[in-house]
Simulated assay, not measured.
Amino acid sequence: MENVKQIKESRKAYDEMDQFTNEEFLQIFLQNQIGMEQLTETIEQFWKVVPDLSLFSLLYNSEKKMIFPGVPEVNRQFLAAVELGRRIELAPQKIIGEIFGSRQIGEKLICVQRGYRQERLTLLCLNTKNKIIFQKVIFKGSLNSATVHPREIFFEALRVGTNKIMVTHNHPSGEINPSEQDIKFTKRLKECGILMGIEVLDHIITGSDNYYSFAEQHLI
């Protein structure tokens, strides 16, 4: 059996955990709980009780408590980890806000972004009911420019699993008219969204007391 340390090093530790086998996960979980000389025997015992992971949920509680016989503390930690994973999987998405239109979100963003001394480009990810489920500042720039590539935006959108996004950034000068760079960036963002199947609903620029919506101007 390959040493756990070697497994971690060969797979760049936790950066590639999705590539770990079930056997490797068990080794990593058990490495600090029991001695290496018992590792093989303990894992073999696990597969006797749980020959297929899909059958785990069908086990009686009495059977689950005997997955690692003789080491009750390991058993408790394992069952706690399984339960935590189940709760994470079932946890509902947090709703940050709801969007009814560009005017509503634009007026709200004026208050939020007013006073920023640097340009900040923020991504808003929406669900199918136009509720905001994720937001993140993608870029902070100088007072004069905020240069960002669409890939950073769509990387986050794909990670979240959304098919609708909005982006917004502020103009510290207070002026809301889009620059030529803003227009080119918005067009590029829209084109990338079409290719990736992610709808870009709007790009909103905020100033000191007003906002500019590309959607309201029919430019997106």
Score class of each variant (00 low, 15 high):
residue 187 K to T: 02
residue 174 G to D: 00
residue 124 L to F: 15
residue 133 I to K: 06
residue 184 K to R: 09
residue 174 G to M: 03
residue 180 E to G: 05
residue 131 K to D: 01
residue 96 I to C: 11
residue 199 E to K: 15
residue 72 P to G: 05
residue 87 R to F: 12
residue 134 F to L: 07
residue 155 F to D: 04
residue 120 R to P: 07
residue 192 C to I: 02
residue 123 L to Q: 14
residue 135 Q to G: 10
residue 180 E to S: 09
residue 180 E to C: 04
residue 103 R to E: 15
residue 171 H to D: 03
residue 181 Q to N: 03
residue 67 I to K: 03
residue 197 G to N: 13
residue 103 R to S: 13
residue 181 Q to L: 03
residue 181 Q to W: 09
residue 141 G to E: 03
residue 196 M to K: 12
residue 181 Q to M: 03
residue 106 G to A: 01
residue 69 P to F: 07
residue 173 S to D: 07
residue 89 E to P: 08
residue 69 P to W: 07
residue 160 V to Q: 09
residue 178 P to T: 01
residue 71 V to T: 10
residue 194 I to M: 10
residue 165 I to F: 13
residue 179 S to R: 06
residue 148 V to T: 05
residue 204 I to V: 08
residue 72 P to F: 04
residue 122 T to D: 08
residue 187 K to E: 09
residue 96 I to M: 12
residue 165 I to G: 09
residue 153 I to N: 11
residue 112 V to L: 15
residue 183 I to M: 10
residue 182 D to W: 06
residue 81 A to E: 08
residue 111 C to Q: 13
residue 189 L to M: 06
residue 178 P to R: 03
residue 177 N to Q: 11
residue 105 I to L: 12
residue 91 A to H: 13
residue 86 R to G: 04
residue 178 P to K: 04
residue 194 I to P: 03
residue 143 L to D: 04
residue 86 R to V: 10
residue 139 F to E: 06
residue 135 Q to I: 00
residue 105 I to M: 08
residue 75 N to Q: 15
residue 70 G to I: 00
residue 132 I to P: 14
residue 149 H to Y: 10
residue 121 L to A: 12
residue 87 R to L: 12
residue 77 Q to Y: 12
residue 143 L to A: 12
residue 77 Q to D: 10
residue 73 E to H: 14
residue 114 R to V: 05
residue 187 K to S: 09
residue 124 L to Y: 15
residue 164 K to Q: 13
residue 90 L to D: 11
residue 86 R to S: 11
residue 180 E to V: 08
residue 179 S to G: 01
residue 96 I to S: 06
residue 115 G to A: 11
residue 157 A to W: 01
residue 81 A to V: 01
residue 69 P to R: 06
residue 171 H to S: 11
residue 132 I to R: 12
residue 201 L to R: 13
residue 79 L to A: 04
residue 114 R to M: 08
